[in-house]
Design a binder for these strands. Structure first.
Lengths: 206, 206, 206, 206
DNA sequence: TATTAATCGAGACGGTACGTCAAGTCTTCTA
DNA sequence: TAGAAGACTTGACGTACCGTCTCGATTAATA
């Protein structure tokens, strides 16, 4: 009795898979999503155009695949004992990703791809989900430690912590520095306003 | 004696200026930046294609112009007396803009246009500058009132307040509600962590 | 008391009429009919485009007018006493026109204009009518002198005499020289074949 | 050991080559060169516009190709034994082509194409070369038979024989009939003038 | 080991949008 | 009212990219 052959014929070359994704990321970084050409990707990967289309049905799908391939790489799960320390680690890491990697070009590209093919939206979430999950964990630990209010809406808190970095990356294009990240963490954790409680303390100090 | 006319020849029809921008915004809202066609804009404006090109040299320039035309419309300059009240007003207004107007489609479009032609970047800033200016003013007033620390980095504070809304609009596409805005304002102003000072206060009250 | 002017308003400047036609001929000679632009004509004449259109309804009409303006200038009406001499004069003059004037560019232009607007065909005939008339006259004189057969179809004869020059001008673009013209005249008048009658004569002379 | 394939990639569909040329000729005949549209040709050939441009870089090149494709089709090489008979055959055939085929539209189109892009001039010669070659052959045969003078300039003779038909086709647009062709042949071979030799014969007959 | 079938590079193909250019009309201002 | 400047509609031009297809050649499992 013979096994049902899984798939006869020549097998796909896995080196090509990698070359295509890498070429896509390079093109994305150099030229941006809108100026990225399927032909340029194929040429850069040393590959025929149909070889790309055999793997990804269209341009946004290719871009999405390239982005996700690079996204979920080693997000830290810090456990420094204090919320401040954990948040600091996470924001510093995102800062590193936004400045030391091609993410500055890749994230906008991903948004463009989703804009063109909305059904990719769900898949695109994977790119930032892992980071949100890490922050969620950190906040929940802080809650069990009593470091934050038990009624805290954690999703909004995540938005508050990550939002400014994305704002600078996508919108204002202001520089994203390590100093920014720690300043941001301090503000978010302590709040902007000088509180009555502190006034009370100051009063005591007099 | 007659003045030398500034520019001879037929004058441009200002109604056409408006019709083109309005048609661009409509197309942007309905079809998105990538599926927006110069021809569709021209047809919708009841205008020939070269008439569009006479005004804007290419697609991203047209889109930028349309976005800026709609951007700086009546940003409020609140003065409720408290930082909390002012911030609430500004975030509520941005929420309104993000949910009740075409901004949800227009802001991503603007980013795509800038992505395609990076030299438009500088001009694109005008779209959010007015809103940042309003928040800056509010924070400076709070500083003179002693409501915030005099060492506060105001630009980062602005990022902290606006960032989460842009994050939801552009990235996570989570709903943006009035409740979110006020929750956000509270968190940002008061901070995420339960502070020792409050504990002390509570202790005293017992 | 003032006379009621027959045509009120500013009078047309006749210098402009001439400038437009001259500019058209120049453009025709330099760039050819298809690459001639109404705008270029207007600019070259130092005139606004509508000023051209006020005189000629469209491009082929303008070109036709320019061609006819230059066409019927002094066609000779030779009367040397012999058909050979008269034909020689006419063909030599056409040779001169085809080589020393802009006719080499103008005649093809005229054909293109007629091709585009066939109703101009009748008017275009004026350009070569005068020359055909001159040749017709010469042939009729020869007939009354008995130099040609009284049954000769004169229209065909005209075609035979002028045809080769037009063929070179329009089709083969072979050089048109004075030597060509006289060789052509000889052939046409004497015929290509060596005739028996001449053999008979030679035989008698021995 | 395998041969190196001459040209990799998909082969061009030769049916499309033909369809494009045929569509071009049809459009030329129906609408003329100036009103011929690349888009109309493509649509008529059931083909995308870039497919036309892949073969021919622009409109005049396409028109030239279409004309040459139809030109050299079976020009007769008559050998009736007499120059008169041979010339009769060739002129009758050209008459047929000018009246029974699309040549009446195609030849002017070709001239327009050359007028627009002069560098096509050399290639355009192929269209009438074959016919001139045939006439040259006929005249050389007549020379070896002693039917024409050995000093006859054959190129001029060809112009003399073909010129009138082209003149009617292109310039005067007078009808081109079989009767015209034979009358023309007679005149060209015998000459227009009544010669002295004939007078001598007539004298003898008395 | 020969067959079989999918993969690969190259490139043709239909379609659609881009950005340019010219024709011909219309409007505004000046002389 | 003529004339100059130039905006305007229409529609063709030639280019670029997308996504599909066909071709010939190669490669790897199966028989």
């Amino acid at each position: 009795m013979s096994e049902i052959s899984s798939t006869p014929g020549r097998k796909r070359n896995p080196l090509i898979d990698e070359a295509i994704l890498e070429a896509t990321l390079d093109e994305l970084a150099e030229r941006g999503y809108l100026n990225l050409t399927m032909d340029a990707v194929a040429r850069r990967a040393g590959v025929g155009r149909p070889t790309v289309y055999r793997r990804y049905p269209n341009k946004p799908a290719l871009v999405l695949a390239a982005c996700t391939s690079v996204a979920a790489r080693h997000v830290p799960s810090p456990n420094t004992g204090s919320l401040g320390g954990d948040v600091e680690v996470l924001l510093a890491d995102l800062t590193r990703v936004f400045t030391r990697t091609r993410a500055a070009q890749i994230v906008p590209a991903l948004l463009s791809a989703r804009d063109e093919h909305p059904e990719l939206g769900a898949a695109a979430e994977a790119v930032w989900d892992e980071r949100r999950r890490a922050m969620r964990e950190v906040l929940e630990h802080a809650r069990t430690r009593g470091e934050v209010d038990s009624n805290l809406d954690i999703e909004i808190a995540i938005d508050l912590l990550y939002g400014p970095l994305y704002l600078r990356l996508l919108v204002t294009q202001a520089p994203i520095t390590g100093q920014l990240a720690s300043g941001l963490a301090d503000m978010a954790l302590a709040g902007l306003t000088v509180r009555r409680a502190e006034n009370g303390l100051e009063a005591k100090e007099r």
